[in-house]
Design a binder for these strands. Structure first.
Length: 554
RNA sequence: GGCCCGUUGGUCAAGAGGUUAAGACACGGCCCUUUCACGGCUGUAACGCGGGUUCGAUUCCCGCACGGGUCACCA
């Protein structure tokens, strides 16, 4: 046994497996040609960021469009950031947006798939096996520097305007002898394991990013930490080992990682792995009120950064995904226009069509996409989805809706399914205001009468109509009767007629219908009045007429 | 500061060495119309700046400016 091998044994006496054992345990995947293996690899911080969901979507589509595999791996190597049930909330988040995984964590503790464990805290022995092999080859070494020493070095480097970090002359323990290491360890000193970087300052590397194109950068020369002093791997090292062993073909991640790509590429090389393709996604931005510019959607400052925000507002998951797709591939919108009925999965997603720059997350656009989606739903579906949402977020609405399902469905059926559908509802949060006058418990009973008609005239209209209203009138006959009555009472039969000779009339049929509308609903603007009257039922309509008259008489 | 990425209307964006520089959202107007919505028509509005290369550049090259990212025993 040579010195390096002894060092490896000294550091990892408990590791008995070799990299080859894992290579055979996790063989190349047997997939069709061109199939891509992608993953979503978040930290369990208990917060699903919109940008993460976006990345997950891109990964999912990339895999499924190529008949590949999409899996969920939890990166929990930093215990400080962990949150209780963090994994479960990630799993739920993905599920609630319909992003299904082929492998990976499916609950706080369970997983499916043959390439696990899919949670990094359960993979320590694997990482250490590879580090041990690296140490045995002299490609990694224990480093006993204290934090003070390192920050001292950093200060010097900064003042001398040198590249900060541990490399070259600053890599004090790079050639530490077996005897010294042994003595220090026996002395109880703590250490990390660093890469003995083979990089040269003058070298440059390059790689082809699936989104950004060719990227060229200086080669890594830093002796980066592979294993922290608690024996746990850093992101960089875990990334290399996991994505190799899980046979990831395409690493899709935020573009904040571009700058560490040279480290990753070097790690793959040193470990003897084939590097995956990278696709670096630009972050979702938001308008910054303070600067007037754009900035990254911030978890801290922006409530809409959290996926929970959209659930709470009641944006249907399909609509959020639909919107995300329009950001991801701008030709999606065109495709959707041409194929309004098609399933999202029929769209051919392309990484290379993704924008290199960060898109501003546009709530107005989301709203539009969502309205267009909701207007295609049946009354039944709107009822189900709203009830499901209200159960969690609006109890009062939930009670109203579920107390009389048939009635609620009738309310949602108003003008629904027409060839020109209404687009009143953008999110379930809007429903309460939309349906309020159908429910005593939701309606404020304020009657917003217009002011161009006198109170006496309005009373006359309502009283007359109260006598005339026949709930058995079919839709085609209903309005002509209102018109007839309007003319009898001295109103023009049409707005145009009125406009020609305003002095001859008290107003026009719209004023008459408008008065009836306000008497019944309190509002000047509503969907089709006939359907509203039918839905309310004659008894309720009469009651409302009486109330309106009382209100006007008062 | 070093290194990297980016920059077409207010927003998302298509685009090619020569185009009237698409489309969608938002906004305005008109039409339809009993209100609203829907729909139709229509309008305002863009290639960051400076140099090259070229007959011609928004498109290619180089600078600059601006925006973003990164430089941890965090991911």
């Amino acid at each position: 046994m040579n010195d390096k091998q002894s060092m490896a044994e000294l550091l990892f006496p408990h590791i008995t497996k070799t990299p080859d054992d894992f290579e055979t345990q996790y063989p190349e995947r047997d997939l069709p040609d061109g199939a891509k293996v992608t993953r979503f690899a978040p930290s369990p911080t208990g917060f699903l960021h919109m940008g993460s969901l976006f990345a997950a979507l891109v990964g999912k589509r990339t895999a499924s469009d190529s008949e590949g595999v999409f899996y969920l791996r939890i990166e929990d190597t930093d215990k400080k950031r962990e949150v209780e049930n963090g994994v479960a909330s990630l799993v739920d988040g993905l599920n609630s947006f319909g992003i299904e995984i082929d492998e990976g964590m499916i609950s706080e503790t369970e997983s499916k798939g043959l390439y696990g464990p899919y949670i990094q805290s359960a993979r320590t022995a694997i990482y250490q096996t590879y580090v041990k092999a690296l140490v045995a080859k002299g490609l990694a070494y224990p480093c006993f520097m204290t934090e003070e020493e390192i920050s001292g070095i950093r200060a010097v480097q900064e003042s001398e305007k040198k590249l900060p970090g541990i490399y070259g002359e600053y890599a004090k323990y790079r050639n530490i002898s077996y005897d010294e290491a042994k003595a220090r360890i026996e002395n109880g000193e703590e250490y990390v394991v660093r890469l003995a970087s083979p990089g040269k300052e003058e070298n440059r590397i390059s790689f082809e990013d699936s989104i950004k194109g060719r990227i060229e950068m200086p080669e890594n020369i830093l002796d980066v930490v592979l294993l922290k002093k608690d024996g746990t791997p850093t992101y960089h090292f875990a990334h290399a080992v996991d994505d190799h062993l899980m046979r990831t073909t395409d690493v899709i991640r935020g573009d904040e990682w571009i700058s560490s790509a040279p480290i990753h590429l070097q790690l793959f090389e040193v470990l003897g792995f084939k590097a995956p393709r990278y696709a670096h996604i630009a972050p979702l931005q938001k308008e910054d009120a303070e600067t007037g510019g754009k900035r990254k959607l911030s978890k801290r400052k922006d409530p809409e950064a959290a996926v929970e925000y959209y659930k709470k507002a009641g944006y249907p998951a399909e609509a959020v995904i639909e919107y995300l797709l329009t950001i991801a591939n701008s030709n999606y919108e065109e495709w959707r226009l041409a194929n309004p009925e098609a399933e999202q999965s029929e769209f051919k997603f392309s990484l290379s069509k993704m924008s290199k720059a960060g898109a501003l997350f546009d709530l107005a656009k989301l709203n539009d996409v969502s309205k267009n989606y909701i207007c295609t739903l049946s009354a039944e579906e709107v009822f189900d989805l709203t009830a499901e949402w209200a159960k969690e977020y609006n109890e009062r609405l939930y009670k109203c809706l579920t107390d009389d399902e048939e009635y609620a469905k009738a309310v949602f059926a108003i003008e629904r399914g027409n060839e020109k559908p209404r687009k009143d509802i953008g999110k379930w949060e809007d429903v309460e205001a939309y349906v309020s006058y159908f429910y005593d418990e939701l309606w404020d009973k304020k009657l917003d009468f217009a002011d161009n008609i006198s109170k006496d005239d309005m009373i006359e209209i309502i009283e007359t109509y109260k006598q005339r209203y026949d709930e058995n009138d079919p839709a085609e006959e209903w309005f002509p009767k209102v018109r007839e009555m309007a003319v009898e009472l001295g109103y023009a039969k049409a707005p145009k007629v009125y406009k020609k000779n305003p002095e001859e009339y008290k107003g026009h049929v719209g004023d008459v219908a408008g008065t009836i509308r306000v008497a019944v609903t309190g509002r000047r603007n509503t969907p089709d009045l006939y359907e509203i009257l039918q839905t309310l039922g004659v008894d309720e309509v009469m009651r409302r007429f009486d109330n309106a008259i009382a209100y006007l008489t008062r």
